[in-house]
Design a protein around this nucleic acid. Structure first.
Lengths: 163, 163
DNA sequence: GTCCAATACTCTGACATCCTACTAAATTTT
DNA sequence: AAAATTTAGTAGGATGTCAGAGTATTGGAC
């Protein structure tokens, strides 16, 4: 890095972003990492008083939207795009806290069905309220730009679809 | 990415997102979570043959841009916006693999300085090449939209500044 | 009908992250 | 100069994530 008249250390964070070859993609990738870290920290903090994390909130929310009131773990994994072991992990903790029930599917005994308990419903409602109150950690972004960002990211969520 | 299944028929899970009340912010928040998961998995896979993770790549990259060739751990934490213990963790693993050196700062003996080894430099170069080859997992997003997304997310990365 | 492949989940281990202390060193106060 | 405070890093524990291996169940091939 030749010819710098300011402290290179203090500027390194910005420097690589502006000088390195594949600047745009690297910038966006690292930016997504940072935003995720900050956002998740804020969302976790918002629901922490209720004894859950944002990951658990997402599971509870998913269960509340299932028509039968229950979902096989594999389905939860597909929806949240997480590994089967992650689902088992989170469901175990939710069950230990009495927020969900686990039952073996009578039709296909390989399956485990998770469903909300009354407590789970209460916690979900309170968490939804808490998260809505902080605008899901996105109040610094105007509503219109939230939509834009959502549309831009849509393609990245569906890697192998429609080009 | 085994365990991830994108059956379009089952994607009804995303439908509700468009019907619920505080739709925009919740949609964007969950979208960011999914994109992060998918992106990180792809980036980790790209550098896995080199024996590192994307988190370690970010640390190596940061060290390579420091003028003195070393950085105190606290500075690394600030740049990557992660907890001090996370830095200690990653540096420990990098040092165990011989990719960085740890030395106590002679000026301020509270500080620990991390610096790249020759091996670390080699791994960093190879990782940069591997990540560039896959466009940092963002090839499905056109360059112009990558810039747009970056600009939109900027505000979320700097919650305290309004620059 | 039996055997085999696919599916659903669990178990163990690795990783990165956070939080709450805690120690050591430097800086500020008094 | 001594004490209090701040700063840098570490230790231990929890969480969520993934990968690999293993068990149980189902469903298809023969």
């Amino acid at each position: 890095m030749p010819g710098l008249d300011f402290d290179p250390i203090e500027r390194a964070g910005q420097l690589w972003e502006e000088h390195v070859g594949p600047a745009d993609s690297m910038r966006l990738a690292t930016s997504l990492m940072r935003v995720h870290q900050l956002l998740l920290a804020e969302l976790d903090a918002a629901v922490k008083p209720l004894g859950i994390t944002f990951a658990r909130f997402e599971v509870l929310r998913l269960l509340s939207f299932s028509s039968r009131g229950s979902l096989p773990l594999s389905k939860i994994g597909q929806r949240l795009m997480v590994h089967p072991t992650s689902v088992t992990n989170v469901i175990d903790r939710l069950a230990a806290d009495g927020l969900v029930n686990r039952t073996v599917d009578a039709v296909d005994r390989r399956r485990v069905l998770a469903s909300l308990t009354a407590d789970g419903r209460r916690v979900l409602d309170a968490a939804t309220e808490a998260l809505t109150a902080i605008d899901f950690g996105l109040r610094s972004l105007p509503a219109g730009q939230q939509r834009e960002a959502y549309e831009l990211l849509r393609v990245l969520r569906t890697p192998d679809f429609e080009g």
